[in-house]
Structures are given as structure tokens and as C-alpha cells.
């Protein structure tokens, strides 16, 4: 019979080696062994730990975006099995995010990688998709009162729309954190637009997203600096 460590290692390896079937099998083993580990441990110490390793491989130029996309598919294969069984504290407020690619942009790789990060963390995710008219971001954010609004624009030609959305949301809901991502953006541009966070590209979204996953894992273990 497999040990907890072995099951977690299987989950992690299945993500790193982008093996969707292996990831499903390992996730099922988590559910079949409730005395050994919880679904949340499977998500955080198996799937998310695997994605952390993927981030290292990406940073060292061993993996590139095609590999990362396949690793994400494997992660979701396991997450789809484990997530319905993760215990939710009904009294705790659930964090939420509205995200999408702005109008004029039909690219959504970076957006989907950021979405994965929120999915792992168990956030309520409102994914507006791509080529999203600006007013839809504002309407959805005001409607859901989401904690975070995340917008992506891969093309230089679409990023100016973000500035208008930020101004409209901040005017009505100054506490909403706003994340921007996309290849043409620079930190200066993000600052200029009044955004709170920034990820340079799909590649950078991988690094940034995985760093946030690492933080989440530490947070869950109570390993958070005061």
C-alpha cells in the first residue's frame, strides 16, 4: 500500500511530466486513502508542489510555454477530481477574482495560467474569457464585488483599454486589487495606469503565478512572516 509521501510524489511527478492519466490516478488514490491524507493536502503538496517544480524548470529554460501548458492540463486533471472533496469552511469569506483578456485581444494563455493559480487556491473565479468589452469588466466587478480584478492584453494595441477600466473600478471600489498582465506591458506602464500588480508575459505569469502558489502553500502550513 502506498504511503502519503508516495502518493504526493506521484501527483507531483504527473504534473511535472505532464501525464494527465497518471495525475487522475494519483488523485483518485488520495480519495481512496482518507486516513493518509486530505484532498487539500493532495492539491497543495502534490499538484501545486508539482507546479512549483515546473516553475523552476521554466526559470532555468528547461521548460518553455508548450511544456507549461501541458503541465497545467495535467494539474487540472487532478484538480477536477480533488476539488469537489476539499472541505470548505462555510463561515469563512471566500475570496473572488474577475479575470479576462481585454477587447481586441484574442490571446488567453497568460490569463489561463493566472486563472490556474486562483483555481488552486480555491478562489471563486469569474472568467469572462477573451476579447471582453471594457464595460463587462466593470459591470462584473461591481456586481460581484470581487477582491481582485485581473486583466490581460498580449498585444500592444489592446492594452490602453485597461487604463479606462482601472479608473472606472477604482472610482467606485477603491479597495479592489487590480492585476495586469501581458507581453507589451512594463511595470512603468502598469504604474502609469494605476494598477496594483503586474506580470510581464505568459512566461512571467508562470513565474509570478507559481511564486504566489508557493506563498499559498507556506501560508497553509502557518509559515508566514509576521
Amino acid at each position: 500500500m502506498a504511503t502519503k509521501e508516495e502518493i504526493l510524489a506521484e501527483l507531483k511527478e504527473a504534473v511535472v511530466e505532464y501525464e494527465e492519466d497518471d495525475c487522475r490516478e494519483a488523485a483518485q488514490k488520495v480519495l481512496d486513502n482518507p486516513d493518509l491524507l486530505t484532498p487539500m493536502e493532495g492539491v497543495m503538496d502534490g499538484l501545486a508542489a508539482g507546479m512549483e517544480k515546473v516553475g523552476e524548470l521554466f526559470d532555468s529554460h528547461e521548460y518553455f510555454v508548450p511544456e507549461v501548458l501541458m503541465c497545467a492540463d495535467a494539474l487540472y486533471a487532478g484538480l477536477d477530481i480533488l476539488r469537489p472533496h476539499v472541505k470548505i469552511d462555510v463561515d469563512a469569506p471566500k475570496a473572488s477574482v474577475v479575470l479576462g483578456s481585454v477587447q481586441g485581444d484574442v490571446h488567453d494563455i497568460g490569463k489561463n495560467l493566472v486563472k490556474m493559480m486562483f483555481d488552486i487556491a480555491g478562489w471563486e473565479v469569474y472568467d469572462l474569457g477573451r476579447d471582453v468589452p471594457l464595460e463587462q469588466f466593470v459591470e462584473k466587478q461591481l456586481d460581484t464585488k470581487s477582491d481582485v480584478l485581473a486583466m490581460s492584453a498580449m498585444m500592444t494595441t489592446t492594452m490602453l483599454g485597461m487604463k479606462k477600466v482601472i479608473a472606472m473600478v477604482k472610482e467606485k471600489n477603491p479597495d479592489c486589487l487590480i492585476m495586469l498582465g501581458g507581453a507589451p506591458l512594463t511595470r512603468d506602464v502598469a504604474n502609469l495606469f494605476g494598477a496594483d500588480g503586474y506580470a510581464e508575459s505568459a512566461g512571467n505569469a508562470v513565474s509570478e503565478g507559481i511564486k504566489m502558489i508557493s506563498s499559498l502553500r507556506k501560508f497553509q502550513k502557518g509559515d508566514v512572516p509576521a
Binding site: Q103, G104, V106, T157, T158, L160
Partner: peptide, 18 residues
Amino acid sequence: VSLYDAAEGIIYPTVPNK
């Protein structure tokens, strides 16, 4: 093709049905 005729500002055409 999406030409964004009614959109405010400058948006380049995109391909909606890949």
C-alpha cells in the same frame, strides 16, 4: 474578423473563429 467599428479608441482587427 472583428473590426470593432463601434468601439471607442484604437483596436486592431482580430480573428474570432479560429
